[in-house]
Structure formats: C-alpha cells, structure tokens
Amino acid sequence: MGFVRMLKYLEEGLLFVNKKKQKNFLILVPWGRGWRVAVKPRYGEPLRTLVMTVFLCVGILAPSPITAAELLVGRPALPAEIAAWDIDARPDGKGLPPGQGNVKQGETLYLERCAACHGEFGEGAGRWPELAGGAGTLAHDRPFKTVGSYWPHATTAFDYIRRAMPFGQAQSLQADEIYALVAFILNLNDIVKDDFVASQDNLATIKMPNAAGFYDDDRETAERGFWVANPCMTDCKPPARITGHAGAIDVTPDSKTAPKME
C-alpha cells in the first residue's frame, strides 16, 4: 500500500513539474540517513523536496547496510597458503616435515653449498661463522660458540637452515637435503656417528651437549642489588683511576690504526 501511495505522489510530482516544462526535473538528494526526491532547482533557487519519498524509498534507493562479511578484515587463509609458509620447527619436533637424510649425503651437499663460507670442517672461512668445534670452551676466557658447543636443540639447525641457508639462496633446499645437512653438521661436532640418518622422527630426540646450559632470565633476583632506593650522590667511591683507553687499542673507523678491510 505504501508503495502505491508513493507512486501516486510521484505521479503528482511529475505532473506538477511537467507544467514548468523543465528537463531532468527530478533528482535524488541525500536526506538524513536516506534519500529524497527533489525538484531540480534552477540556479539560485532553494531546494524543494517531495515530501513523500523519505521512508518509502529508503529500502530501494539508500546504500544497503554493511554486511558482516564486509566488516571482517582479512580473509580465511587457505590450507595451501599455510603449507607454503609454515616452515618453522620446534624443539618438540612440531613442524618438522616428513623426510630423512644421512651424513654422507649431507657431506656432499655441504661441500657444494656451504663449505665456501663455513669451511670444509665447519671451521668458518675468513670471518664467516663457524659451525663446529668449541666443545668445553664455554667457561673459558675466549669461548667458542658453535652448533656443537652451544646450541641446545638440533631442531633449531633444521629450522634455521630451512629458512635462511645457503646465505643468499634461502629456502632453496628440500626437506631430505636439510635432514642430511643437519646430520652432517652434527657429525662434524661428534654428536652423531658416521652412519646416522636424520629424520622427522629422531631429530627432536638428539641430545645436544649444551642442552642444560641455559636458564631463564633471572636478572630481577640475581641482580637485585641494582635496584636502589636512594642513589649515592657524594663520595661514593675512592677517586677514580683510568684503567683503560680506547685510544690504546684503537679500532675505531677513521683512526690511523683501525683494521682496514679489503
């Protein structure tokens, strides 16, 4: 019934405007939260709307309400997309892909794709990182931290090589190749025997020599003395003596004695 009434008014409006023989006599104008039909004003004329349209036309002519789907930001990730990016592996073995590789295969690959930087025996070429050695040096004056001497988990080597190595050709290795490389690096560090085969099933079970060498941040207890209610302001210690000069070592860029790199 409302619709019929609307048409009636619309008709009257048409007749009304027609008398004036105006072209494009009706226009839509925004009105409150909806729209109204108005008589197209001539230049300088006030806008005259046709009363009838407001609530009748809202359903037909106003922008449709925002849907729930439009309010969602982002979209569901597809299984194939997750699979393409889901490359992480955890110490409990979660995330390790199916596959396996042995020490021998790892050695071949390593010599081809890693040794140029990390050295034939993981000793590191030039200033590139070492991957082997250093067992028992962690409490020494010059500790030597490597996968073998320092890393708590073998799975971390898998996760890291898979995402970042070879340096400059990241994510170019297949799962079997990464297992083989990890097997070889563990073998270089005397952690597994020559006939070892690394796989999805056993990598999380490898006992790394320094697995127990880490503990959670304890600064708030071990360093409690650094929390001080009233900092000392005067005569806090004997007169200060200079015990070292950077100038004596001078490795600062621009200094005459700083090491020069090629």
Binding site: P91, A139, K145, V147, W151, H153, A157, D159, F214, Y215
Partner: peptide, 24 residues
C-alpha cells in the same frame, strides 16, 4: 611453547662466566 629459534639460542642468549647462559 617457545620455538627456541636460532635467534633465541645461538644468538641473543647471554653467556656468563660459569659457561651457562641466560635466555629470554
């Protein structure tokens, strides 16, 4: 659980004089 990635084990752990290291 934490991932214990290379950046939070090999690196960004603080080796103390006794040979043990603080993590996290």
């Amino acid at each position: 659980a934490p991932w214990e990635t290379r950046e939070e084990t090999s690196k960004y752990t603080d080796l103390l004089a006794d040979g043990r290291a603080r993590r996290s």
